[in-house]
C-alpha cells in the first residue's frame, strides 16, 4: 500500500510537470483569441522547452556555482510543491510534510535562489530584476497569508488537504468570507506569477521587466529549467486556488493511480476554465507602473482582511 501511495504521489507530480506547459499554452491561446490575433499552438511551450534543452549553454565568465545551481533548486522546489498541493488527491504521502505556510516558504526559497542567481553575474538588469522580484514577494506574502488564514478558520487547520476535505464535505457554494479572500487570492496569483497588470510576460523592454529580468543571463538547459519552473509555479498557484476555494472533483481519502485517473478530468476542466479566466483578466487590464504594485497588493491584503472580518463578525 505504501509503495502504491508513493507511486501515486510520483504520478501526480509527473502529471503536473507534463500539464504545466499546456496550461501556459492555453492561457496564451485564449489571450490571442481575445485580442484578435492568430493563436499559437497549444503545444508551443513544449517546443520552446525542447529547443532550449538542445541548445548550447552560455555562461558569463564571472558566474559562480550558485548561478548554475539555482535553476535546479528552483525547478526542484516547484516539482516538490506540485507533489504537496492536493490537486487530485488529499491523502498522498508528501502532502503531510508541508502545510500552506510551509508551501509559501518553499515558494519564497525558490524566489530567493532566483534573485541571488540574478545578482550573481553583476549586470544592471539582473540586480534590478532581483530587487523588484523580491519587492513583489514581500508585498504579496502577507496578503497570501491572510487568505490562508481566512480559509483555515473554517477548517481550523492550515493543512491544504484538511481545508479541501472540510470544503468538500461541507455545503456547496462559497461563503461570503471565502468570496472576499478568493478575490484577494486572484490578485496575489497575478502578482506572484508575473502576469499583467503586475508584470508583462511577453515584454521585450528590459526596463519594465520584473521576472524576465532575473533570467536574462540564462541560456540553454538552464533557461529551459527556469521557464519550466515558472510554468509549474503558475500551475501550482492555480491548484492552490482550487484547493482553497474550488475543491470539487478532488479525490478525498486514500487513492491509487486509478483514483488519479478519475480525478484528472475534473482537474483538466477546472484548469481550462481558470486559464480562460486568467486570459480574460490579462486582456482587460493594462500593465501598471512598478511603484503602483504596492497599491495593487495592498488591495489584495484589504480584501483578505475583509474576508476575515466577515468571518468573525457574521460567522460565515
Amino acid at each position: 500500500m505504501n509503495a502504491v501511495a508513493w507511486l501515486t504521489q510520483g504520478l501526480e507530480a509527473v502529471v503536473a510537470l507534463a500539464a504545466a506547459p499546456a496550461l501556459l499554452g492555453w492561457v496564451n491561446q485564449c489571450r490571442a483569441w481575445l485580442q484578435n490575433r492568430r493563436a499559437p499552438s497549444l503545444w508551443q511551450p513544449y517546443g520552446t522547452l525542447r529547443k532550449l534543452l538542445h541548445k548550447e549553454v552560455l555562461i558569463a565568465e564571472n558566474a559562480s556555482p550558485l548561478f548554475r545551481l539555482a535553476p535546479y533548486v528552483t525547478f526542484g522546489a516547484m516539482v516538490l510543491a506540485a507533489g504537496i498541493i492536493p490537486s487530485m488527491g488529499t491523502r498522498l504521502p508528501l502532502v503531510a510534510s508541508a502545510d500552506a505556510i510551509a508551501l509559501v516558504g518553499l515558494f519564497a526559497a525558490a524566489r530567493m535562489f532566483m534573485a541571488l542567481a540574478a545578482m550573481d553575474v553583476g549586470t544592471a538588469f539582473g540586480t534590478l530584476g532581483a530587487r523588484r522580484e523580491m519587492m513583489v514577494g514581500f508585498l504579496a506574502e502577507p496578503a497570501l497569508l491572510m487568505v490562508i488564514l481566512v480559509a483555515s478558520l473554517t477548517s481550523s487547520s492550515t493543512a491544504l488537504p484538511a481545508i479541501t476535505e472540510a470544503l468538500v464535505s461541507g455545503h456547496l457554494g462559497l461563503s461570503p468570507s471565502l468570496a472576499f479572500s478568493a478575490v484577494a487570492f486572484i490578485l496575489v496569483l497575478l502578482a506572484e506569477n508575473a502576469r499583467i497588470p503586475v508584470d508583462n510576460p511577453a515584454t521585450h523592454l528590459e526596463l519594465t521587466m520584473i521576472h524576465e529580468a532575473t533570467l536574462l543571463e540564462y541560456s540553454g538547459r538552464h533557461l529551459a529549467l527556469m521557464e519550466w519552473a515558472a510554468q509549474l509555479k503558475l500551475f501550482n498557484y492555480v491548484c492552490i486556488g482550487f484547493a482553497l476555494f474550488l475543491p470539487w472533483g478532488v479525490a478525498v481519502g486514500r487513492i491509487g493511480p486509478v483514483g488519479l485517473l478519475v480525478a484528472a478530468p475534473a482537474l483538466a476542466l477546472k484548469l481550462t476554465a481558470a486559464g480562460a479566466g486568467l486570459a480574460l483578466i490579462e486582456t482587460l487590464s493594462a500593465k501598471m507602473r512598478v511603484m503602483r504594485i504596492p497599491e495593487f497588493l495592498a488591495t489584495a491584503f484589504l480584501f483578505a482582511v475583509l474576508g476575515l472580518l466577515v468571518h468573525v463578525l457574521l460567522g460565515a
Binding site: 555562461i59 565568465e61 549586470t123 540553454g220
Partner: peptide, 15 residues
C-alpha cells in the same frame, strides 16, 4: 544524460 550540450564561458550578455 539527455541534453549533454556543452557549456561555454563568455562575457556577460546584459542585453
Amino acid at each position: 544524460l539527455f541534453f549533454p550540450q556543452r557549456v561555454r564561458r563568455v562575457s556577460a550578455w546584459d542585453c
